Simulated scan of single mutants.
Amino acid sequence: MRALTVAAVAAAGLAAAACQGATEAPYTPGVCYAVNLAEDGKGVPDFSVLARDQAQIEFCAARLEEMRLRFLRMGGTRRDVIGAYQGQFIFIDRFGVSFSKTLEGNRFMALARTGDGRLAIPAAIQREIDGTPIAVAAPPPEPAN
């Protein structure tokens, strides 16, 4: 029994060491964070609370985009913003909004920028480009009398 416990602890230690290079976002329900990376790129990122009581990750992305635009209007030059929401990172750049589980990991594209800089779901952009109609449901049948 003791050997099994020692083996389990050793396996957990190896797993933790393997994941040590990946930076993970805090998981606090409903809290949206702005992430400031270390100047040298090697330090621990700083997580600043941007908004509380955010129901979805998309709302957090909207708060980050709002912050980015306000800083640009005040003369700032930073066009890329990183945020975090419930264990996921949010990246806002010139292409749009993408999500990732880790700071260094692969990103999933969630929202793309339109020609005028707005954010939209990628399918909406494609419909606007090629005119693909939006699916329309048939009206409900009339009740039988």
Rank of each mutant, 00 (worst) to 15 (best):
R2T: 15
R2H: 10
A3I: 14
V6R: 01
A10M: 14
A10T: 15
A11F: 15
A11Y: 15
A12Y: 13
L14N: 02
A17F: 14
A17S: 10
A18T: 15
Q20E: 05
T23K: 04
Y27I: 10
P29D: 03
P29K: 11
C32F: 06
C32N: 01
Y33T: 14
V35A: 03
N36D: 03
N36E: 04
A38K: 14
G43N: 09
P45D: 02
P45L: 01
S48F: 11
V49Q: 01
A51I: 03
A51C: 02
A51M: 04
R52M: 10
D53G: 08
D53T: 10
Q54R: 10
Q54H: 09
A55R: 09
Q56F: 12
Q56K: 06
C60K: 01
C60Q: 04
A61L: 01
A62S: 10
L64D: 02
L64K: 03
L64G: 04
E65Y: 09
E66D: 12
E66L: 04
E66R: 00
R68T: 13
L69A: 06
R70N: 09
R73F: 05
G75N: 06
G75Y: 13
R78S: 07
G83R: 04
G87T: 09
Q88D: 12
Q88N: 13
D93T: 05
F95H: 13
G96I: 11
V97N: 02
F99A: 02
K101C: 04
T102I: 03
L103E: 07
G105F: 14
N106Y: 11
L111S: 01
A112I: 15
R113Q: 10
D116R: 00
R118W: 13
L119G: 05
I121V: 09
I121Y: 07
P122C: 07
A123T: 10
A123S: 02
A124M: 02
I125S: 00
Q126F: 14
R127M: 08
G131N: 06
T132K: 05
T132D: 00
A135E: 06
A137P: 05
A138M: 07
P139Y: 09
E142G: 09
P143K: 01
A144M: 00
